[in-house]
Design a binder for these strands. Structure first.
Lengths: 300, 300
DNA sequence: ATAATGTCTTTTATCGTGAAAAAACAGTTT
DNA sequence: AAACTGTTTTTTCACGATAAAAGACATTAT
């Protein structure tokens, strides 16, 4: 089967949305940067658009003939990366219970179950290992360390260290730094969300990530910035898993963020520290309460 | 070519050393744990030892017939892991100059140059990426970020944060913790090395790593412990690369370690903090002075 | 002259395959 | 019966091959 053409399919779907807005498409290189793919893929997309009668294509002229219909789009599931597919499968197994710490992870079994080659699974596990949830035994299997209370505590310990430092660095940034404008925009989005929290509470997690990433970037330290990937990954699956009191939790978090933002704008390091600590503390508690207590680490 | 039998060859070489000491070898499972390989590999080793007349092997009895000669050993270079080979090649290129930040890394070219398959190179690069020296462009090449001054500063910033915290945790460990015995042993080795520093200065880097890993382990945080891999890797190649004033540097470091150890034993958090800071500061300076100033980051 | 399109080449992503190594199972020995 | 040896099965590691995607080069249009 070799390689799936999900890059093409995903870019095609995104390309369809452009047809709603204009009467004619820009040049191939321009489309390339717009959709984030190479010209080769753009030309494959244009070829299909011509074939299905969406556009008339002749060299530089790419005239829109009709608006795309729902059935013009490729199905969602065909646009996923292999590594996304593997990650989802793996996390589902991991969170679905029965995944006791100390358990062995079998590459071949995983590959067969998901229906992909072993190479892809291997590469996924290597990438995934930096999250600290699995560990490799040399020349042998992987071992699941598990999503335990210890893991959550170790994760949040680093997170707090990094974020306090980043927040302090943020507050010390000069007046003319572009981050203040970014912060203002985020503040606006927070206020808007706060007003409509009753209906839009599930949009918080995406805003949360953008906010914290902005702060971490102020550290100008690649290790700190990269570590947020670990946090984001855990919170992503945690939010999917634990929907209890989601609205209340997010409502509290939005308020804490607004206080945090105000503290940053005051540039008062004491206030920043206090607001940051307060928010991180409740984030930690949320995470901890969602971990099943029965799961205890086991000897391998 | 599929897979090299370096595991067998390495274990065989280590197994030969056992023949010097005893007149007969233990059971297969015991040999397995001793050499850290499976029984399958042990049996292959025993078969060859029998073949070359080193032992007489009949079921449980494995009598040593003669002491191994130098030519019984497999050549050193045949015992390396593929990933070690790739890492060495890669680091040589990286440090040998001409490796400008922003430069593209080509999997295929690397694989051809080293003489290995592309899969192994890919997996190496994925593993290596956590060191923060390279970065992946989705669906495209890797980009070298380079061993720059910025890298060294970011690395040491995290190192200092982590080690100060670990050292504080270490000092707070109860009297009966086994780490105090480990520390005493390390102190002894330091004193011995200090006395013979003139001739044995090149043995320091190994001792250095063991000492710092002991301290980091006191954090009981996998992210802190794992981060030391980044530091160890950088220092490993840095030591190989920069031999200037090696003796003097190591002499200073040993003295600083001894002061650091004394501070830990005093359990006085203020003293620990001071001694740790002092050592980390000079470690940072050593690293920084070894980075060629001309190398400036470039836009991709 | 610049920027596009048309064409060709190279590289990346993924699979199936086969040998090395581990692990499981079955039969022996003490 | 516990621990070992003999044998078979399974898994990991590494490769070459191939389609997708990127990139480079040549040509044409404004």
């Amino acid at each position: 089967m070799s390689k799936s053409n999900n890059v093409y399919k995903d870019a095609y779907n995104r390309g369809l949305r452009l047809l709603d807005e204009t009467k004619s498409l820009p040049s191939e290189p321009e489309l390339g940067t717009l959709l984030g793919v190479s010209r080769t893929t753009i030309r494959t997309i244009l070829a299909r658009m011509e074939e299905t009668g969406l556009i008339a294509w002749n060299k530089r002229s790419k005239t829109v003939l009709r608006v795309p219909r729902p059935d013009d789009f490729f199905p969602e599931e065909e646009t996923d990366t292999l590594s996304q597919i593997i990650e989802r499968s793996f996390m589902r197994r991991l969170l679905a219970g029965g995944a006791e710490p100390g358990m062995q992870i079998n590459e071949l079994e995983l590959a067969r179950e998901i229906g992909v080659g072993t190479t892809s699974v291997r590469e996924f596990l290597i990438r995934f290992s930096r999250f600290g949830l699995i560990e490799k035994r040399r020349n042998s299997h992987w071992v699941l360390k598990g999503f335990t209370r210890a893991f959550a505590l170790e994760l949040t310990e680093i997170r707090e260290m990094f974020e306090l430092r980043s927040a302090a660095a943020f507050a010390a940034l000069p007046e003319d730094s572009p981050v203040w404008a970014d912060l203002d925009l985020l503040e606006g989005e927070h206020r808007l969300l706060a007003r409509e929290i009753a209906t839009r509470f599930n949009e918080f997690s995406e805003l949360d990530e953008r906010f914290h990433r902005l702060i971490h970037r102020a550290s100008h330290n690649r290790f700190i910035v990269d570590f947020y990937d670990v946090i984001a990954m855990i919170f992503h699956y945690h939010y999917q898993w634990n929907k209890a009191q989601e609205r209340e939790r997010n409502e509290v978090a939005v308020t804490e963020h607004l206080a945090y933002i105000a503290a940053l704008k005051s540039r008062d390091l004491g206030k920043v520290d206090a607001a940051c600590r307060k928010h991180l503390k409740s984030a930690r508690n949320t995470l901890l309460t969602s971990i099943p207590e029965g799961q205890q680490p086991q000897r391998a």
